[in-house]
Amino acid sequence: MTKVSMTVNGKPATAEAKGNTLLVDYLREGLGLTGTHVGCDTSQCGACVVHVDGEAVKACSIFALEAEGAEITTIEGMAAPDGTLSAIQQAFQDYHGLQCGFCTPGMVMSAAALLKENPRPSEQEVRDYLEGNLCRCTGYHNIVRAIMAASGQESAVAAE
């Protein structure tokens, strides 16, 4: 065990990790940040997506030691400190972009990465970008609607 430090949601964080400790276990068990979910543990589902130095990464597929010194953003870092939801989170609520909510942290983190790269994506671009995020409740249409709305393109997704 060694102490591993990184910046998580803007604050310095330190917890113990072994060579084979995954980033997602470091976050959930080391730091108690259980918002990042583990859906498959086989790199397929995207429930564990966090940002590492600004890029979307599956936290179940990298080791904590590889992220030493990095800037990490998790779902817990998306809302303002007073609890006000980010535009993407608010849109997920407004457009019923979640059902059980298990996939939602990864969906929101992938959506945030997309909108940073491409602030006004087409619906197809949203769908392509979410290729690695699976929703077992299959709420994909509303997830896409929420992301379109969060990008200020509400008219394109008028509720059916």
Partner: peptide, 9 residues
Amino acid sequence: IGDPAVRNR
């Protein structure tokens, strides 16, 4: 290749 998170790593 894969999806954006796979391509980032």
